[in-house]
Amino acid sequence: MKRKSTKIRLTTGEVVFSCVNYLVLTILMLICLYPLYQVVVDSISGPGAVMRSNGMLIWPKDVHLDAYKIVFSNPNLRTGFANTLFYMFFGTGLQFLNVCLSAYTLSKKNLMLKKGLMIYFTVTMYVGGGLIPFFLLINNLGLMNSRWVLVIPYGYNVWNTIVMRTNFNGIPDGLREAATIDGASDFTILFRVLMPLSGAVSAVILLWGAVGYWNMWFEPMIYLTERSKYPIQSILREILIDANEQLMAGAGQTTVKFDPSTRSAANTLVKYANIVVCTVPILVVYPFAQKYFIKGVMIGSLKG
């Protein structure tokens, strides 16, 4: 929000206020950045230096990239990335397709079952059986340890459907009517008339869907048993939380060897390099997509 500064002189009070304000916000930015900065600095420093300072290096010391060599030669990390892309692509894709299709139906005029379907959809937002029956269901369906367990059960989304439906309702009816008169089918109207006008909402839904898959770790933990199917966060969990040293050391695929006396610091370095490699992609993408993410918050807040 801009406020025109029509004043020529600022009172002392206002100057003090502004200074304090800028100072507080600057400190806040530093607090937000510090953990990441420390992780980056440590990850490119020597294990000896990191051990002596307990990880609190202000500048990188004995710079070398051994930790990154280990990370990039770790086959588990590569399969993790590939798996995450697989889940992200099919999961977000299936969900988005179903969201568009069902939102279209729910926004169509003169449909006898529309109200019933709407109730059928919305009730699920408030009622559910919880984790245990869902777990047993997945087991009974034979989806346990299948890649599709992270795709099919999440192939619909009621909240996004309602958002998309609201968006379709906001598009002038005249467009649909004109297309109908020209003999367009429902599918044509959706994909040729409505979707080209729904770019922003689509971006929001797709981006949040992708972020959801990027962060997913709990579901893979309980539904997947083989490491070859793990998404990146599950591999990271083993490295960062369970401190699985064998996995950390690149599963024997690397020639980099650390001095045994600095082994624990070297492990920290490798953990940090993993964090950097797995966090940088999203932090690079995020500023460009920021406005869509923010739009998502505004859409989401309409409910509350």
Partner: peptide, 17 residues
Amino acid sequence: MILPSVLLIAVFAYFPT
């Protein structure tokens, strides 16, 4: 068009209740 979602909801939302 709405059928796939209806089926998914039936299996993964209503059935587990």
